[in-house]
Design a protein around this nucleic acid. Structure first.
Length: 174
DNA sequence: GTAGTCGTGCTAA
DNA sequence: TTAGCACGACTAC
């Protein structure tokens, strides 16, 4: 995980995830506070476009979606189907189902698997390959006996981000 | 309760 | 074809 110091105060930006859209990479940054070496996420996330990336209408749309989510996670975003990243037929099906989960609600991999007539592990695989976390809300899917993973990681600071996103939607996950 | 094991569906190499 | 997974159910202790 890359980090960027903020010399203005005790806050610093903590790199959260690279959102690989079909068009370019968006960097997700959380405004966090360094506490004894631990990144404590407490502020809104900021969206930055890769410095080398060309600013296109699609990238702007992605940025708008994420910024809109930061301001109000309960407002259902208008998701243009052209923004849906490439994936297998199964992955597309799972990602579409994820977008139907309303903010503030969580489901387990098993529950979603039952709905899609597949297995929990298969759902987890599709979630792991979700290239645009936050926009496709894979953070709303948790394991039966735990929080599950986020952005390809099953442990570490990524899970703090998943908890933060859930908390942002009013879900307390211990 | 919890650790170990296995079945499952899917994907990438 | 095979190994690897963001899982879940079952079993033994």
């Amino acid at each position: 995980m890359q980090r960027k110091a903020d010399s203005q105060n005790n806050h610093r930006r903590v790199y959260a995830a690279s959102v690989k859209t079909p068009f370019a990479n968006l960097g997700l940054w959380f405004q966090g506070r360094a506490l004894a070496g631990i990144d404590f996420i407490e502020q809104d996330l900021l969206v930055q476009v890769d410095p080398g990336a060309e600013m296109t209408a699609e990238i702007e749309a992605m940025r708008e979606l994420i910024n809109s989510y930061c301001l109000n996670p309960f407002r259902r975003p208008h998701f243009d189907s052209e923004l849906m990243p490439a994936g297998t037929e199964f992955q597309q099906k799972v990602w579409k189902a994820l977008q139907d989960i309303p903010a503030g609600r969580i489901v387990t991999y098993g529950e979603l698997a039952k709905e899609l007539n597949t297995s929990a592990r298969a759902v987890g695989n599709a979630c792991r390959r979700n290239p645009i976390p936050v926009i496709i809300p894979c953070h709303r899917v948790v394991a039966r006996a735990g929080i599950g993973g986020f952005s390809g990681a099953t442990k570490g600071s990524m899970l703090n981000i998943k908890k933060w996103l859930l908390n942002h939607e009013g879900v307390q996950f211990s």
